[in-house]
């Protein structure tokens, strides 16, 4: 599915300070190997560019989009602007919309174009020990593209990290490793059946890929996206700690839960439903950290 010369990304975010060391630029690839119930970037799941509709920005009386839509999928009423069933995500309306109410998420980039974007902050990478992180979606699904891109970026002297859920086959990740300085590796939940239910896939391969990765000796930072009530029970914490200890890993990054993704759903062509989890208080994380510590795992702070 992945092409060598082009890839669909949905953002290049500069000045990221949470995805690896220093000041980083994060490239978000579109398309994912999992389908997590709490996905923070629901607009990243579909592998192709897609239309989003942000009703609050729409200018009343403006109907430029209605006029350009070749599928008659757009209507005059701001509250019921789109018939998603007819929309082909061609993007003509987004080009026309003066208000950024209709916005395409995802665009194709070529190797050179992406390189030009990620080198913009190279001086800041240099002063902060930062670099570029490839995220998504699941960047490993773009292995063919990255296989060419990473050596180019490396030749520019950039520190390179990838952020993966491990849901892609080892054969796709493996060829990328020689050009990578760091792998940020997500573990969601230990119980295989629960993993299947929450993410659409079991975690057998995910655990296997992590094992192989660690065996290669490349720096790996294991991370757990905290989903209160889903992976924060004692059973999961103990199981995660035991699994990591077994692999010789004694540290873990806890990624705080953010419920803002639910607000995006309204703008998307999706059937995904909100989970209704409130963002927990900071005390919750302190307590969580100490429970991991008690199990022999030191969280990164």
């Amino acid at each position: 599915m992945s092409r060598r010369d082009r890839a669909v990304i949905f953002d290049v975010q500069r000045f990221s300070v949470h995805d690896g060391p220093g000041i980083r630029t994060v490239v978000f690839f579109k398309g994912c190997a999992l389908d997590c119930a709490w996905c923070h970037n629901p607009e990243a799941v579909r592998p192709t560019p897609e239309l989003t509709y942000w009703r609050d920005r729409c200018i009343s009386g403006c109907r430029e989009c209605v006029e350009v839509c070749p599928e008659t999928a757009l209507f005059d009423r701001i509250e019921a602007r789109i018939a998603w069933s007819r929309c082909t995500h061609c993007g003509l309306c987004a080009q026309t919309c003066p208000a950024d109410a209709l916005v395409m998420v995802g665009r194709e980039v070529g190797q050179r174009e992406l390189l030009d974007e990620v080198v913009k902050d190279r001086e800041f990478f240099a002063t902060s020990g930062g670099g570029v992180t490839f995220s998504g979606g699941e960047p490993v699904l773009h292995s063919a593209f990255l296989g060419d891109f990473l050596p180019l970026a490396r030749a520019e002297g950039l520190h390179l990290a990838i952020e993966t859920c491990g849901g892609a086959p080892w054969e796709l990740l493996e060829p990328l490793l020689p050009s990578l300085d760091l792998v940020l590796y997500d573990l969601k939940v230990m119980d295989t059946a629960l993993h299947q239910r929450l993410t659409g896939k079991d975690n057998v391969q995910i655990h296997e890929v992590l094992r192989r990765l660690l065996a290669r000796g490349i720096p790996v930072e294991v991370r757990m996206p905290v989903v209160p009530g889903h992976n924060t029970d004692d059973g999961n914490i103990r199981a995660t700690a035991a699994f990591l200890t077994g692999l010789g890993v004694d540290r873990l990054s806890l990624l705080p839960y953010n419920h803002l993704w639910e607000a995006k759903l309204r703008a998307l062509d999706t059937t995904r439903r909100p989970l209704g989890i409130r963002a927990p208080e900071p005390d919750f994380y302190r307590e969580l950290e100490s429970r991991f510590e008690a199990s022999g795992i030191q969280p990164y702070r």
Binding site: H18, E43, S135, G136, Y257
Partner: peptide
């Protein structure tokens, strides 16, 4: 503080560059 597990959750969606 962005507490996003991954990605620009707190940002506006990217616009047509």
């Amino acid at each position: 503080p962005s507490s996003c597990a991954s990605g620009p959750v707190c940002q506006m969606p990217p616009r047509d560059s």
